[in-house]
Computed example of a mutant assay.
Amino acid sequence: MPDHDPEELDSFATILAQLLPGAWTREFRQHTAHDDQHFLTSDVWDMNQVAEALASHTLKHDVILTRNDGLRLFLMDHPRHDEEFLVASMAPANTHAEAFRGVREPDGIAIPADPEQATEAITTGLLPRYESALAQVQDNAARITRSSAKPDTLVLTWTETGDLSTTTEEPDVAEILARNGFVHEPDGTAYTLSGDDTAEQARSVRTAGAQLTALGVSLALRHAPQRAPLGTVPVAAPHAPTRTVRSR
Score class of each variant (00 low, 15 high):
1 M>T: 10
2 P>H: 13
2 P>E: 02
5 D>Q: 04
9 L>Q: 01
13 A>M: 01
15 I>H: 01
19 L>C: 05
20 L>W: 01
21 P>A: 09
23 A>C: 08
33 A>R: 14
38 H>S: 15
40 L>S: 08
44 V>F: 08
45 W>P: 00
45 W>Y: 09
49 Q>L: 12
56 S>E: 14
59 L>A: 07
64 I>S: 06
65 L>H: 05
69 D>I: 12
71 L>I: 10
72 R>C: 03
73 L>T: 00
75 L>F: 01
79 P>K: 04
80 R>C: 15
87 V>N: 00
89 S>Q: 08
90 M>I: 03
94 N>K: 12
96 H>I: 08
98 E>T: 05
99 A>D: 05
100 F>I: 03
102 G>D: 06
103 V>D: 06
104 R>V: 13
105 E>Y: 14
117 Q>W: 05
119 T>Q: 01
120 E>R: 10
133 A>M: 04
139 D>K: 14
144 I>S: 05
144 I>D: 07
150 K>Q: 11
157 T>C: 03
157 T>F: 03
160 E>T: 02
162 G>S: 04
171 P>N: 04
171 P>V: 00
177 L>N: 01
178 A>M: 02
179 R>L: 09
180 N>Y: 12
184 H>N: 02
187 D>Q: 04
187 D>S: 02
188 G>V: 06
189 T>L: 07
196 D>K: 11
202 A>I: 02
203 R>E: 15
211 Q>Y: 10
212 L>E: 09
215 L>C: 02
221 L>E: 01
222 R>D: 11
227 R>T: 10
227 R>G: 05
231 G>R: 09
232 T>M: 13
236 A>Y: 10
236 A>G: 09
241 P>C: 12
242 T>E: 11
242 T>A: 09
243 R>P: 07
246 R>K: 13
